[in-house]
Structure formats: structure tokens, C-alpha cells
Amino acid sequence: MAKIQLNGKKVVINSKYSILDLLKKYNLANKKIAVEHNGVIVPKVMFKKRYLKNNDRLEIVQFIGGG
């Protein structure tokens, strides 16, 4: 188990979870989103290989309505 900060909320995930695994869990794998891992943007091609560990901070953003 690993505790991470996901979009400002504490979330517990399995250890050996990749960013792609997490996106799948939240039905976001094929959506128009971007990911920031500990303050650094992660390119899409890295989602599969980048594993999450305890105390990681993850931000997942999308486009919403705005002026």
C-alpha cells in the first residue's frame, strides 16, 4: 500500500501502481487530461512506466468551461 496526494486528497493505492493504472481506476485513461507528478509534468508516453510511491503528489487536470 502507498499513500499519495491525488488532486489535494489523500488516497491509498496498491504498491507497484503506475500512473496508467491509477488513470484506469478513475476512468481517465483515454480522456483529454494532463498529469503532474511531484510538480513535474509527465508526458503521456511515460504513464505506463512511471510508478507511484508513498507521499507522492499527483495532479490530474482537464478542460472545463471557462471564459
Binding site: Y26, K32, I60, V61, F63
Partner: peptide, 15 residues
Amino acid sequence: VAVRRVNILDKKKPL
């Protein structure tokens, strides 16, 4: 469009 956090509590919320 604006850039905001995905709502992780509501998995079915449309984009």
C-alpha cells in the same frame, strides 16, 4: 476553456 482538477470523487462526471 479553463484548466482545472479532475473531480476524482465522481468518476462518471462528463467532460
